[in-house]
Nucleic acid binder design. Structure first.
Lengths: 209, 209
DNA sequence: TGCGGCCTTAACCAAATGGTTAAACCATGG
DNA sequence: CCATGGTTTAACCATTTGGTTAAGGCCGCA
């Protein structure tokens, strides 16, 4: 029985891993069930045995990746650290996550764009807004204390997400624009991590009188 | 002859317009030739008559949109205005362009990700790097004059692109996060336009002694 | 060893999809 | 008024694709 369970799990996991890879690479519309089966070294019928349809399999993967995508945020938002530390951590961890899976952000955003209604629902379910409210409140509090400049927290947070996510979504453009090969791109991203933190935090430090 | 030419153009243009709409909406893999034909109120065979294949039709559209996407940059980079004015103009015009076609950036980036090799080639053809070099040189010059802080022009420029492009690419997330309906989103983007310019320019102004 | 139930697969199916073709259409010029 | 050229269409075709099924395999168990 143990051996069988192991095998089961392996089959299911193999499918999931393969599906993740193919869907991330080609998106829902571009992915073929046969590609996933090949990637998993399994028969196509297996996919339908474990997951009823392409759509179901996709939703399984997508839900997972969406959580993955916003996971760091959850942790960091609730950590007992200063605002500046939160910003630094958010930037660093977000970039690290994407570095380990560069197609994640463009995949997520593209599929969400294809089906924005389900997006709003999912984000409600994940209580994204409540999560973000913590950040916003802290920014407002710091402004009232006078420890940071008066800025709009919404735009601040969006800019943070933008500067961390965009370099991955626009990877080919970045490589073309700055004439970077793969190694050069990696180095660039590593610099970018520090640059973004500094950029944001500098923008918040009040002008000394 | 005039009438026929008019008709010709109308048919070709109708196909192109329809294709643009469908491809932008669903991407290359998700778009169906029949969808395009329906959208254009024409027979599917017409598409193949004017453009040999789906791939050819797509390339026509894509090349066009890529130019459209980087068009503002070209103009503004060469204008005889100050660096700060260039930054303001870049942000404003880039956002205006995307506002009139919100799916453009995610479409471009997603398709480029699907085929990064052709991306590098296209960007070489468009001399993007030469175009960007103008901006970089101006930043370096201003730094040497001491009129702006010492910053890395590459990251500065990437951040500019990121903050302008990301809000459109991540539109569903932005709407979910800040609980915005369509009107609220439009207003938010309009604020964002000003916010980003200010954010960048403030980050460049040297700290007064 | 053989029974029984879950796994796995090759073969198959219907629908969708990109693409072709041959015939009809239609304005123009002789 | 017909011949001619490009233009438009309905019907058709081959392949791909998501999905099904029925037969066999494998494993623990008696």
């Amino acid at each position: 029985m143990e051996v069988k369970e192991l095998k089961d799990k392996n089959a299911e996991v193999k499918i999931l891993d393969a599906a993740r890879k193919i869907f991330l690479e080609k998106g829902l519309a571009g992915a073929r069930m046969q590609d996933i089966a090949n990637e998993a070294c399994l028969n196509k019928a297996l996919l339908h045995y474990y997951y009823r349809s392409k759509e179901k399999l996709f939703q399984t993967i997508f839900q997972d990746e969406l959580l993955n995508f916003f996971n760091n945020m959850q942790e960091i938002m609730n950590a007992p650290i200063t605002l500046f530390e939160k910003i630094e951590l958010l930037v660093a961890k977000e970039i690290d996550t994407m570095n380990s899976c560069p197609r994640l952000p463009i995949f997520i955003m593209n599929e969400l764009t294809q089906d924005p209604d389900s997006c709003l629902m999912k984000m409600k379910n994940m209580e994204m807004h409540k999560l973000y409210a913590k950040f916003r409140n802290e920014v407002v509090a710091e402004i009232e204390k006078g420890t940071i400049k008066k800025v709009n927290p919404d735009h601040l947070f969006l800019n943070l997400l933008a500067m961390t996510g965009y370099p991955f979504m626009a990877k080919p453009v970045v490589q073309g624009l700055f004439e970077l090969n793969e190694d050069g791109y990696s180095d660039f991203i590593e610099q970018h991590k520090k640059d973004v933190s500094k950029f944001i935090i500098d923008s918040l430090i009040p002008i000394p009188n």
